[in-house]
Design a protein around this nucleic acid. Sequence first.
DNA 1: CCTCTGGCAAACAATATTGCTTACAACTCA
DNA 2: TGAGTTGTAAGCAATATTGTTTGCCAGAGG
Lengths: 160, 160
Amino acid sequence: MALSSMNPRKYGMNRDPDEPEEGGDSLLTDRQLQVLKLRLQGRSQQEIADLLGTTRSNVSILEKRAHQNIGRAERTLQQWMMIRAPVSVHVPAGTDVFDLPQMVFSVADQKSMQLPVTAMDILVLLRRKAPHLFRKRAILKDVDVYVTEEGELLVMESGL
Amino acid sequence: MALSSMNPRKYGMNRDPDEPEEGGDSLLTDRQLQVLKLRLQGRSQQEIADLLGTTRSNVSILEKRAHQNIGRAERTLQQWMMIRAPVSVHVPAGTDVFDLPQMVFSVADQKSMQLPVTAMDILVLLRRKAPHLFRKRAILKDVDVYVTEEGELLVMESGL
DNA sequence: CCTCTGGCAAACAATATTGCTTACAACTCA
DNA sequence: TGAGTTGTAAGCAATATTGTTTGCCAGAGG
């Protein structure tokens, strides 16, 4: 049985107007979520199209727009962190990662802020967030490190 | 000089149709970003309204919708991580945090996955992401922990 | 009392986004 | 070669979102 028969939605209807979208919605529509989940289970676009009762091309576009929305969400949070972060440190390529916490703390000190993170937190988090920017103890490219008052960290290649 | 005179946009125009939005856009519109930045500088809504050449109420709504979009972005990424995570562990209240890495690794082992994180990474990351869910070595509420293949972590209160 | 501050509702025009279709192109694998 | 796979473009109807206005309401502080 095609799943679509349980979703007798009109053309172009992608949200329920009865629910006042209280505050708990995301960028991903129901349709996009269905496609993502089935895709993650290894199904082909054609299989999904049959399950959802639509065309293969449509599934392709639903998937594409879903990933677009995920990218938008990521960039939105990065942007928000960047404008909100009281501490931003420019780190030139070649810097020793072990010097990094010191650099962050010194900028925080200048603003008489006390960050809720330890030096080790910084090392662990940065390594995790951008492994491709490190090589052994060296930093490969110029990066900017942002830290919020809550201790969230963001690493970005300089000039992005 | 009011900033608005440099933004001679028509009514309802919130994006430049000439730029094909290559792929680097976020949820926050220019207008929303202006308000957020000025707000973070401590300005009042009325000040900002004067700067941008609009009304105080408008600034209030721009600010509100900006925060709505940030929330949407957060929920989107959480949702994406949840459906994508091959490892999800239910952790009952009262669990010792030091048992947590073991729980995660055992689930990963069951799926014969090798997570690119150490036990310490897990402790550091979870403490950082949800400090309010911990108290000394105990976990306060039932939570679910999700881990992706790339080693990203997410903690969520169970049933949210 | 008044003022400054902020949240929020309803309404509107303009623009953006979505789900969908049809059609064409490119790739891999047998 | 052919089949299975995926990306993508153009276009359409329906819905969502945005910036804006006007107006009302509430707390804080003088």
